[in-house]
Amino acid sequence: MREEIIRGLIHDENEMTNHRMNWFLILQGFLFAGIAFAWEKSIGLVIVFSGVGILSSLSVGLLLHLGIDAIKNLQREASEIKGKVVGKKAEEVSKFVHFEPVINFVFEA
């Protein structure tokens, strides 16, 4: 019974992460379009769009980190019940693993 509740909570957190990423990508698309139209017309507007993009990236990054922590805590709680694994375990990933191709490209040149 309790495993089903935890499984549901993990599912809900995954759905929230999906929604956050979708809204983030939509916002970034609008910001890039806004910068493209304002590039030669208003440097102030470009700076504002850039600032909003940076702040939204930081906030989404923080929310994703907290969401992953919440899922890990739920999985830990589930494993304490009867030693069962509820759902797929989150992989430990280096914070810079997504930037490895860029870092390799920059430093190989």
Score class of each variant (00 low, 15 high):
G61T: 08
V60D: 05
W39I: 07
E77P: 01
G87E: 01
G29Y: 01
S56P: 04
E80Q: 08
V93G: 00
F30G: 13
S94V: 02
I6A: 10
V86M: 07
L63I: 02
K89T: 06
A36H: 00
H65M: 02
F105H: 04
I5S: 14
I26Q: 07
N104Q: 10
A38S: 15
V52T: 12
E3S: 08
L63M: 09
V97E: 10
F32S: 04
E108T: 01
A33N: 05
W23H: 15
F96R: 08
W23F: 15
L62S: 12
V102M: 14
V85F: 01
V60A: 09
I47K: 11
E4A: 13
I6N: 12
L64V: 05
A36C: 00
G51M: 10
G87L: 01
Q75G: 14
A70T: 15
K84V: 10
V48A: 15
I6F: 03
A36T: 05
G29F: 10
V102S: 03
D69N: 15
E13I: 09
H11T: 05
G67W: 04
E77V: 14
V102E: 08
R2M: 13
N14Q: 11
I47N: 02
F32Q: 01
S50G: 13
W23A: 13
F105M: 07
S56C: 11
K88W: 08
K89A: 07
L74I: 09
K41N: 12
Q28F: 06
L66S: 07
E40I: 05
F99S: 02
L62H: 11
A90N: 05
I81H: 02
G34K: 01
E80N: 12
A33T: 05
Q28A: 13
I35A: 03
K88Q: 07
F105I: 01
V52Q: 07
E91T: 05
A109R: 11
S59I: 10
M16I: 06
I26F: 12
F30Q: 11
M21E: 09
A38T: 07
G61E: 01
H65N: 10
R7H: 03
L25H: 14
E15F: 02
S79G: 03
I26T: 08
G8C: 06
D12E: 07
A38P: 00
G29I: 04
I6M: 11
E108G: 08
I6Q: 14
F24T: 07
K84W: 00
N104E: 04
G34C: 00
E91Y: 04
R76G: 10
N73H: 13
L74K: 08
A38W: 00
I54F: 14
E108S: 14
K84I: 11
E91A: 12
F99P: 00
R20V: 11
S42W: 03
